[in-house]
């Protein structure tokens, strides 16, 4: 039961983006199309799950004093691996995401989960927490990406829905990210108020 909860809570209840509001930098920057959002989510999911796994596995041999530098080494290793792999196998996506792949290193979600969860919990729970948080991140990022792409470019996952000239370009520009994320947060808050 508690394993399920570890996985489950990151999706909506403690959604990293829309509830905890961490890791917003890549969310705002690369959510201008659904495909970019999905690519970014995949990279973050890989790094988050792997780093949670390793941090949980080594938590007993890591002295308290140097845990943060060690977390950073682990995280940056996985970020660099995903960076190389994307560059090699999905060069177009890599070009679209640009500097935001290396910047996953400083994404608060990953260091936050390592410090707050993986360092204190067994491997399996930590992996599930990583997967759940990744899924929550993916849900948030992809919904923002889909909304922005539909309204701002008239397409979804690159498939044209209506004449792009009629689409509101502002939605795929930075202001569109803020407007969309604001409305999604408001919607989630409203939903929670109703449930309570």
């Amino acid at each position: 039961m508690s394993l399920w909860k570890n996985f489950n809570q990151g999706i909506l209840k403690e959604n990293p983006v829309l509830r905890l509001m961490i890791g917003l930098c890549p969310v705002l920057a690369v959510s201008n199309s659904a495909i970019n959002a999905l690519g970014m989510s995949a990279a973050v999911a890989f790094v988050l799950t792997c780093s949670n796994l390793v941090v949980a596995a080594i938590r007993r041999i890591v002295p308290d004093e140097i845990r943060i530098p060690i977390f950073i080494i682990i995280i940056s290793t996985f970020v660099t691996i995903s960076d190389y792999v994307m560059q090699a196998f999905t060069p177009d996506l890599y070009k679209a995401l640009g500097v935001f792949v290396p910047l996953i290193v400083v994404n608060c979600i990953i260091l936050g989960r390592a410090e707050a969860f993986a360092y204190r919990n067994p491997v399996l729970n930590s992996v599930l927490d990583g997967l759940g948080m990744s899924l929550g991140f993916t849900v948030a990022l992809v919904s923002i990406g889909v909304i922005r792409e539909v309204l701002g470019a008239g397409s979804v996952f690159g498939i044209t829905l209506f004449n792009p000239a009629a689409a509101a370009t502002i939605m795929i520009l930075p202001p569109g990210a803020f407007i969309t994320i604001g409305f999604l947060m408001a919607f989630l808050n409203k939903l929670e108020n109703k449930v309570q």
């Binding site: 691996i81 190389y84 560059q87 090699a88």
Partner: peptide, 22 residues
């Protein structure tokens, strides 16, 4: 020492991935 060990492992695995993807 511990930090060094972690760094060595990290660099080693990165070198490995680099070799394959470069």
């Amino acid at each position: 020492m511990i930090l060094t060990v972690f760094c060595v492992i990290a660099s080693g695995s990165l070198a490995f991935v680099y070799l394959f993807t470069q």
